[in-house]
C-alpha cells in the first residue's frame, strides 16, 4: 500500500462529495436516519462527530508506532471512547443547554463506523498532519450529510427550518418518522450517484473509501 498521502486540498474536500461518508461510503447510517429529524439536531451531532473524528484520527496517527496490530481495534475503540467522554463531560459542564439536546447522541458516537474506519484505513498508515486533515474532511462530510438530510426532512416533513415554522402545516409528516429517514437517505444517495454519473465516473464499488 503506497504511503504517499494525497494532497491537503484533496483530503479536505473529498469527504464532502466524492467520498461523503454517509452518501457514498454508506457509513454511520444510524445517526443519519435517527438524528436528522431537524436541522438543529443534525448540526449539533455533526459538530460533535467532527471534533471526535479529528481528535481520534490525530491520536491514532501519533501513536501508530506503539499500537500493537493485534489489538488495534480495541485500542482504537478506547481512543474514540476517551474523546467522546471528554466531549460529553465538557458539554455537560460548560454548555448545558446544548447538552440537553444532544447529550444522548454524543454517547453513541463511540459506535459510529466512520470514525474507526478512518483510523484503520488512513490514520494508522499516514503521518499526523495528513491524518488530521483527513479527519477534518470526513468530519465536514458527515456534517454536510446531516445538514442535507436534516433540512430535507424538517422542511418537507415539518414545514419548519431550524425550529422556525415556514408554513403552518406539516407537508409530509412521513418524513419526520423513521421510515421517512430511510427514504431520505436513499434518495440523497441516489442523487449523489446521479451527479457522479453525470460527471463521468462509475458508481462506487465498496464502502470504506480509499486509504
Amino acid at each position: 500500500m503506497s504511503v504517499t498521502p494525497p494532497t491537503v486540498s484533496v483530503l479536505l474536500t473529498r469527504g464532502l462529495f466524492s467520498e461523503n461518508p454517509v452518501f457514498r461510503l454508506a457509513l454511520s447510517l444510524c445517526p443519519a436516519v435517527a438524528v436528522t429529524t431537524a436541522v438543529e439536531n443534525g448540526l449539533m451531532l455533526g459538530i460533535a462527530v467532527f471534533f471526535v473524528q479529528v481528535l481520534s484520527s490525530m491520536t491514532a496517527s501519533i501513536f501508530k508506532k506503539w499500537i500493537n496490530p493485534k489489538i488495534r481495534i480495541p485500542v482504537y475503540t478506547i481512543i474514540i471512547a476517551l474523546w467522546v467522554t471528554v466531549m460529553d463531560m465538557l458539554l455537560a459542564a460548560y454548555f448545558p443547554s446544548t447538552y440537553e439536546k444532544v447529550g444522548l447522541y454524543v454517547k453513541l458516537i463511540v459506535a459510529f463506523a466512520i470514525i474507526i474506519s478512518r483510523m484503520e484505513l488512513f490514520a494508522a498508515k499516514n503521518p499526523v498532519l495528513p491524518s488530521t486533515f483527513d479527519g477534518v474532511g470526513m468530519g465536514l462530510g458527515f456534517l454536510l450529510a446531516m445538514l442535507l438530510a436534516g433540512a430535507f426532512r424538517e422542511l418537507l416533513g415539518n414545514g419548519s427550518f431550524f425550529g422556525y415554522p415556514l408554513v403552518h402545516f406539516q407537508p409530509l409528516f412521513l418524513l419526520v418518522l423513521p421510515a421517512g429517514g430511510f427514504f431520505t437517505i436513499g434518495l440523497i444517495m441516489a442523487l449523489f450517484n446521479w451527479v457522479d454519473l453525470l460527471r463521468g465516473n462509475t458508481l462506487p464499488k465498496a464502502s470504506g473509501g480509499h486509504g
Binding site: 467522554t85 463531560m89 459542564a93
Partner: peptide
C-alpha cells in the same frame, strides 16, 4: 492512561456540571 486523563478531567467538570 485513558483512565488517568478522564479522571483528571472529571475532577474539573463534574462540580461544574
Amino acid at each position: 492512561i485513558s483512565a488517568a486523563l478522564l479522571g483528571g478531567l472529571y475532577s474539573f467538570t463534574e462540580p461544574a456540571k
